[in-house]
Design a protein around this nucleic acid. Structure first.
Length: 709
RNA sequence: GGACUCGUAGCUCAGCGGUAGAGCGCUGCAUUCACAUUGCAGAUGUCAGAGGUUCAAAUCCUCUCGAGUCCACCA
């Protein structure tokens, strides 16, 4: 053995033998306690980042339960990541001097497919580098035919149940990316914009968006506002930049009398609050901004101007005509932006498919309230409830091509819609909706969709699908930032479709930040690639460093000292093994070399006081580590193991035993270390495998050894 | 406007009701035979502040101050 552990020479080979061994596949048997996790599918088109490396938590759980003897499934997948991927592809097109509008739908889809296909596999080999014991035979892609079929079925069922409806409503629209978004995809930024006080006949009102005034179909005040009582319900004559006009005054609770003058203009087609006011008071929605972000001919001579240009132009004319009372230049407010390209989101009226969320949210709330689903750490329950209790209907239409096309057809003659499970309706006059589903709509079905579409297996003469066997899954482990985007939606749709919870426990990890505690981002240029760290420190060390010293659900700053410490720890393990191996040669013990000595058998073997002591302490360690794993206290389990192996086992016990080593104490030394390796295996799979085989002189993998008890 | 997290040794963070902990750093010593990616010994903290509950509080409660995050959304 070398003096130093060289991970570069070991990890690749070990992973290969694991994969060939078939141990990643669950050993299905009847009446066993099952364990399953569906991997949150990484974007098929992008390299892994630290968020994915945190899935090491799942590998720890999977390896632990596999060793405990459960049929254990960890199912990998890849996400087509609809808008994300199309966004990247369009950037690529732009670099070639092209745009998506240069191609028809079919060609564009195929081009993105090929683009993704070219990058496929990268992410998968990276998951292998991390040592993840995923069952690659069950790999799924979100655009697999059978997955699409299941998504169609769900949509059709929702439609038939009246949970999906088509409506012209205001949506968050990015005029640059040319698609609408759900509420979650809008980010807000604090901005300082001028607040214009505009004269509307006898009234004055404040707005930051004078360019939308062509879409005004009313003026609103608070019902209790005494100043304006006399106008309520009446039409007032106003002077506008396009000449004189009449406009109705309504009273609505949502108006804040403290804001501005207490009067607001109502522009139902371009503001969410105004849309609602419009609905309540029968004010028509007049769209004056088009989907290209420019004003249309309803804006008279301002038609063709962008929103920004129009604002300046309108203000200028109002100034000239004395229609502007004053301008507050220091007005602070928050502006909605496209989460991807940061363009100002334009609320625009668009016909879309919506999912009614309230009936879905209720059972999802109950499932957690009743404890059928548990969330770890507990504090995230609040965020979950808060989201579900205030949920709004979900816009699931996206105006892109990269995704699952919505199986809805419109009759060009009657205008009626028909929803199917994917097949085109008979007859000539049907035209399919050109939109695709929001990626999260299909992702919400991932746990049951993946299992339903896996091949059946024979279990005790019974043909069972993975769905029948494994569902509901045991754990959904992911970053807390997608609790609402994904986890909550999986619970809702899972409960709706399968009538069962999709998973029993939700385990949430925190973010990995850069060494200074800053969020990693491409624009800041502080992104660290986990694969580079694996090259440098080894996968075991990277895994260990990510778990060690950070409580579940907390963010952590990437720490090089910690990585180094973890790497040194692997070296320590290596040298403990070297010592034991060396002593074996000199002592040449003839007694039973069995690997599976239990701690109790070991206890009976112990004669010397210190041998008894180390066995006793190991016994306690087993209990502690097991308990911490069951409670998802991964950091504590890791810290306890590190401390025990290094400072108790190596520093104290080995230092003591090395001077009095005999046949008997050697057995204690040897077998108790094998127990430690097994305890450590879920955290550091590669080196523990290597050392286990070195010491036991057997071909048997530590992966399928029994968890110490 | 609501909610959450964090504030513990120089730095990064565990601990979350029973005599202050780890990693890195620091000081001194050791070392041909498992390991310098080492060992031994050691220094370093009114656990942000103020009140309260308790036999006992870094740990529970209230408030204050600082750092950060999320949600709602203002026309």
């Amino acid at each position: 053995m070398d003096k130093v552990y060289k991970h570069q020479e070991m990890e690749g080979k070990i992973y290969q033998t694991w994969e060939e061994s078939g141990y990643f596949q669950p050993q299905l048997k009847k009446n066993a306690s099952l364990y399953s996790i569906i991997l949150p599918p990484p974007n098929a088109n992008a390299p892994l980042h630290f968020g994915h490396a945190m899935y090491v938590i799942e590998d720890i759980l999977i390896r632990y339960h596999r060793m405990k003897g459960s049929p254990t499934l960890w199912l990998p997948g890849a996400d087509h990541a609809g808008f994300e991927t199309q966004f990247v592809f369009e950037k690529y097109l732009a670099s070639q001097g092209k745009s998506r509008f240069d191609y028809d739908r079919k060609t564009l889809y195929q081009m993105i497919w090929d683009f993704v296909e070219k990058n496929r596999g990268g992410m998968e080999s990276q998951l292998r580098r991390l040592g993840f014991s995923l069952d690659w035979n069950r790999m799924k892609f979100t655009l697999d035919e059978d997955i699409i079929g299941i998504v169609y079925k769900t949509f059709k069922k929702m439609y038939d149940d009246g949970l999906v409806y088509r409506a012209k409503r205001l949506v968050n629209y990015c005029t640059k990316d040319g698609t609408s978004f759900s509420d979650l995809e809008v980010i807000y930024e604090e901005r300082k914009d001028p607040l214009y006080y505009i004269k509307y006949g006898p009234l004055v009102l404040a707005t930051v968006r004078p360019e939308t005034k062509f879409g005004d179909t009313g003026v609103a005040v608070h019902p209790q506002d005494k100043r304006y009582q006399k106008y309520v319900g009446k039409e007032i004559e106003i002077e506008t930049v396009l000449g004189p006009a009449k406009i109705k005054v309504v009273a609505d609770e949502t108006v804040d009398p403290e804001f501005g003058t207490g009067v607001i203009k109502v522009t139902p087609a371009h503001d969410f609050t105004d849309f609602e006011i419009g609905q309540r008071h029968n004010l028509p929605a007049r769209q004056v901004i088009d989907f290209n972000g420019k004003l249309n001919d309803k804006a008279g001579k301002f038609a063709g101007l962008t929103v920004k240009q129009a604002r300046t132009a309108v203000v200028e004319i109002m100034k000239k005509r004395g229609l502007l009372e004053k301008v507050d230049e220091n007005y602070q407010h928050r502006v909605g932006l496209c989460y991807k390209c940061k363009t100002v989101i334009e609320p625009l009226p668009l016909e879309q498919w919506f999912v009614k969320m309230e009936p879905l949210a209720k059972p999802a709330i109950d499932a957690v309230k009743k404890g059928e689903i548990k969330i770890f750490p507990r504090r995230f329950e609040k965020i979950y409830f808060q989201f579900l209790e205030n949920i709004k209907d979900w816009n699931i239409s996206r105006q892109i091509v990269w995704g699952i096309r919505i199986p809805a057809w419109r009759n060009t003659k009657t205008g009626r819609w028909m929803v199917t499970e994917g097949e085109a309706p008979s007859g000539k006059d049907w035209e399919q909706d050109s939109d695709v589903f929001d990626t999260w709509f299909s992702s919400a079905q991932w746990p049951f969709a993946t299992l339903m579409s896996s091949p059946k297996s024979k279990i005790n003469n019974q043909e069972l699908s993975d769905y029948e066997y494994f569902y509901p899954t045991s754990v959904m482990e992911t970053g807390y930032e997608i609790l609402r985007w994904w986890v909550a939606r999986m619970v809702m749709v899972g409960l709706y479709t399968t009538k069962k919870i999709p998973f029993e426990h939700v385990v949430l990890h925190g973010m990995v930040r850069d060494p200074l505690g800053q969020k990693m981002s491409k624009s800041k240029g502080n992104v660290v690639n986990p694969l580079e760290l694996i090259d440098q420190y080894g996968a075991d060390a990277v895994r260990f460093a990510l778990v060690y010293g950070t409580a579940l659900g907390n963010d952590q700053a990437l720490s090089y000292p910690k990585l180094q410490a973890a790497r040194n720890f692997t070296n320590k393990l290596w040298n403990i093994t070297r010592f034991i191996d060396m002593k074996r040669e000199t002592l040449n013990p003839k007694s039973e070399i069995r690997n599976n000595l239990t701690i109790k058998q070991l206890n009976n073997l112990a004669q010397h006081k210190n041998d008894k002591e180390i066995v006793g302490k190991t016994q306690i360690l087993i209990k502690t580590v097991t308990k911490d794993l069951e409670a998802y206290n991964f950091n504590r389990a890791a810290e306890t193991l590190y401390d025990f192996i290094w400072h108790t086992f190596a520093d104290k016990y080995i230092e003591d035993v090395k001077n009095r080593l005999n046949q008997n104490s050697f057995l204690i030394l040897h077998f108790s270390f094998l127990i430690l390796l097994r305890l450590l295996h879920p955290f550091m799979p590669f080196i523990t495998e290597k050392l286990y085989q070195l010491l036991s002189h057997e071909q048997k993998s530590i992966m399928i050894e029994a968890w110490p008890r």
